[in-house]
Amino acid sequence: MGHHHHHHSHMQELPDSGALMLVPNRQLTADYFEKTWLSLKVAHQQVLPWRGEFHPDTLQMALQVVNIQTIAMSRAGSRPWKAYLSAQDDTGCLFLTELLLEPGNSEMQISVKQNEARTETLNSFISVLETVIGTIEEIKS
């Protein structure tokens, strides 16, 4: 019997450019998020300048486009305003994020935790997040 080769998917033949593939992870529950969040240390924290009005629903829609799921979010207009986001890449690495908008509306604080310490995927994830948040900044002005 000739044994046939299993062809690897083409994804694996591509050079690893550190490109991040986020996959939908709708099955993540708020409970699971909270447990995981509490068990991990913050891997990355930064502050983005924020000006003016803020529309959480616009942010939520923009995040959905890149497969970042909103687990919980303060009501629009609350200060401080918080959101908890989760995303997962195609290797199963989980990114948990807290967004915090201070009462003065002048900055958005981002804290990211991940369940596997992988700096390059973390950096890719951060840039996706910055891009989304930056985009909304421009829309609302």
Rank of each mutant, 00 (worst) to 15 (best):
F125K: 02
K82E: 14
H7Q: 06
Q114M: 14
Q109H: 13
P15R: 09
A19P: 00
A19E: 09
M108C: 13
L85D: 01
L85Q: 02
E98M: 13
D31C: 07
K41A: 13
T36P: 01
S106H: 13
D90H: 11
L122F: 07
K140H: 10
M61Q: 13
V65E: 14
L96I: 01
A30D: 03
Q12Y: 14
G104S: 15
T91R: 10
Q64E: 14
N115Q: 09
W37R: 03
Q69Y: 08
K35I: 09
H55I: 08
V112H: 01
I133L: 15
N123E: 13
T97G: 01
H6R: 02
N105A: 10
K140Y: 08
T36M: 14
S111R: 14
L40M: 09
H3D: 11
G104R: 06
V128S: 02
H6V: 04
H55P: 01
R75C: 03
S17L: 14
T121N: 08
E130T: 04
S86D: 07
F33N: 00
V132I: 09
Q45A: 14
L14E: 06
T135C: 10
H3V: 10
I133A: 13
W81P: 01
I139S: 09
Q64C: 06
G134I: 07
R79V: 13
Y32F: 11
L48G: 04
T70L: 02
H5Y: 06
T36G: 02
E98Q: 15
G77F: 10
E107Q: 15
L100H: 08
H4K: 09
E116H: 09
E130Y: 01
A117S: 11
Q69L: 11
M11L: 12
I71M: 11
V128P: 00
T58M: 11
T119M: 11
S106K: 12
D90C: 10
L22R: 03
I126G: 00
R51Q: 15
T91G: 09
R79A: 15
V112I: 15
F33L: 04
D31Q: 13
K113S: 06
M1S: 14
K113M: 10
L85I: 03
H3P: 02
P15D: 08
A87D: 04
I110F: 04
P56H: 08
L96R: 00
F33D: 02
L101A: 04
W50M: 12
A83F: 01
K82A: 11
D16T: 03
Q69R: 11
P49M: 10
N123W: 07
T70N: 03
E130G: 02
P56N: 08
I126S: 00
S78T: 13
N105V: 03
T119N: 10
I136S: 03
S111H: 08
R26D: 14
E53N: 10
V66N: 05
E130K: 12
A87R: 03
K113V: 07
G77Y: 11
L100N: 07
L40Q: 05
A43P: 00
L40S: 02
S106E: 14
L38E: 07
E137S: 15
